[in-house]
């Protein structure tokens, strides 16, 4: 029932999700929310890297969480910097 109400509210493209077959078809419902997929991507990178680097594996989850946050914050920072450059700096550049 909860999922049904979620679909009806328009949060998830119902048709796309119903047609989803794992490994065969893409999750088209995530097309508009692609940027949220960067968070598990950062988590996977952090987990693999920290598995190599951390000597005390009891600290791996806290270290992985920390690195995930660092990657996501860095990506947001780069996005803001690029947006400022494109929307503010470039329009103020002299033309010829």
């Amino acid at each position: 029932m909860m999922f049904a109400s979620l679909f009806q509210s328009g949060c998830v493209a119902t048709d796309s999700l119903l047609a989803y077959v794992p490994f065969k078809t893409p999750i088209n419902a995530l097309h508009d929310w692609w940027y949220l997929l960067l968070i598990p991507l950062a988590f996977g990178i952090a987990l693999t890297y920290k598995a190599l680097r951390v000597y005390d594996l009891r600290a791996i989850w806290s270290q992985t969480l920390l690195m995930t946050v660092q990657i996501v914050v860095a990506m947001i920072g780069l996005a803001v910097a690029l947006a400022i450059f494109v929307l503010v700096v470039i329009p103020r550049l002299p033309v010829q």
Partner: peptide, 17 residues
Amino acid sequence: FIMAGVLFLFIGGLLIG
């Protein structure tokens, strides 16, 4: 842990796309 990390990324990519 390495196996979990790499397979999480690879299988996640296959599930998404």
